[in-house]
Amino acid sequence: MTTGLKIVLLLAELLCVSSAILVTFHPNILHAAVALLFAFLGVAVMFVYAGADFIAGVQVIVYVGGVTVLVLFAVMLTHWLYKVTLRDVRKKLIVPIVLLVILLVPAVYKSLVELASSSQNIAPERVAEFAGSAKTALIGQALLGNYLLPFEAITILLLGALVGAVGLARPK
């Protein structure tokens, strides 16, 4: 990767992490929801860097266009909710910190080891090859080929959810 691309990736990661921290600690629920939007966008950029541009597009459509808007909707329609300040009175820190250490230390260690062992995981020419290949077509072939049964099972689940939603929303 060129330096410019690395800087963009770094910025995206910073955006993601800082937004995630805001989501967790911001007392105003609406501002937290907006921070969540930016965290989702950061994740989409990282998907692009991982060579999964289709997933990146879907990530933005589903999470930014769908989930965030739904969260905002819910907050705005329940008028008492955005006056609430979310702050835990009793600070519970021990369990989260232990969990954080357990999860974070191996990840940091592994990435450091990989950094030390090889300067680059994917050669630059592989990156170009990655970006140019028609992965979207491969996803389609996989869904309707090897993974047809799980795909169909999920379709039926989603159809059930859709019918259920219509049933719930129907006037009595």
Partner: peptide, 25 residues
């Protein structure tokens, strides 16, 4: 001319909905 061109166009224009919603709120 990206691989997911039309999907990209759909994706970035979804930013408009949260924008309008936030501005109004």
């Amino acid at each position: 001319d990206m691989n997911i061109g039309i999907l990209y166009a759909l994706a970035v224009t979804t930013l408009i909905a949260p924008g309008l919603l936030l501005g109004s709120w």
